[in-house]
C-alpha cells in the first residue's frame, strides 16, 4: 500500500450500477485478463442507483487504455475517470493494533496526536489506533509505529475524487466509447 504510486500505477474512479454481482464482474474481468489490482474500494454514492469503485491498477500487466476499454465493455459500468495523482484528492484509512505496554504508551499516544489519529481501544499490552489521510501519510505513520511492534494492520485502499480546480484536466473516459 505504498503512498506514492509507482509509474505503473493508475487510479481509476469507476461509477457502476448498484446491482447484483457488479463487484464480481469487475474482479472477474481483472483476473481473467491478467490485470493486477493494487487496491480496490467500493462505496455507495450520492445517487443510490450507483456505486463508486476506486481501483488502483498496476499497468505493468496491460496498458491502462486496454484496461479501461475492457472495463467500459461491462454493461453495469457507467463512467470511468482516470485520475492522475496530482489531479485527485485521495484518502485512505488505517487500523492498527500496536504493542504498547504501560511504559511505552505515551510514546505511542504522542505519535497518535502528531498524525491526528485516534485511539479506538486500549488493552494492558496493546492499543488499537485509527488514522486517515493520504496514502503517503499512512505509510509514514505505519513506519513509525513499526518499532513498537505491529500486531495487526489493515488499510482500506484509497478512495479518490478529482480536484475541483483541475476537474477538466482529469481524463474522462466516457461509457459512450465503450459500451459495446
Amino acid at each position: 500500500m505504498g503512498g506514492e504510486l509507482g509509474s505503473t500505477h493508475h487510479i481509476l474512479s469507476v461509477l457502476v450500477e448498484n446491482r447484483f454481482g457488479v463487484l464480481s464482474r469487475v474482479a472477474g474481468l481483472f483476473s481473467r485478463r491478467g490485470y493486477n489490482i493494487y487496491s480496490l474500494a467500493v462505496s455507495p454514492t450520492e445517487d443510490e442507483r450507483f456505486s463508486r469503485m476506486t481501483i488502483v491498477v498496476d499497468t505493468e500487466s496491460a496498458p491502462i487504455e486496454q484496461i479501461t476499454k475492457q472495463l467500459n465493455k461491462l454493461v453495469p459500468v457507467v463512467k470511468i475517470l482516470e485520475l492522475a495523482e496530482a489531479d485527485a484528492v485521495e484518502r485512505e484509512m488505517l487500523l492498527a493494533t500496536v504493542k504498547a505496554s504501560a511504559e511505552l504508551r505515551s510514546h505511542v499516544t504522542e505519535l497518535v496526536s502528531i498524525f491526528e489519529a485516534k485511539i479506538l481501544d486500549v488493552g494492558h499490552e496493546a492499543m488499537t489506533i485509527m488514522a486517515s489521510g493520504t496514502p503517503g501519510k499512512l505509510d509514514a505513520f505505519s513506519e513509525l509505529l513499526a518499532p513498537f511492534g505491529i500486531v495487526e494492520l489493515q488499510r482500506t485502499g484509497r478512495i479518490a475524487l478529482p480536484k475541483l480546480a483541475r476537474r477538466p484536466k482529469a481524463r474522462r473516459l466516457r461509457a459512450v466509447s465503450g459500451g459495446s
Binding site: 457502476v16 450500477e17 442507483r49 461491462l74 454493461v75 453495469p76 459500468v77 457507467v78 463512467k79 461509457a175 459512450v176 466509447s177 459500451g179 459495446s180
Partner: peptide
C-alpha cells in the same frame, strides 16, 4: 434501463 451501455 442500461445507463452503462451505449455502443458507438
Amino acid at each position: 434501463d442500461l445507463p452503462g451501455y451505449k455502443p458507438t
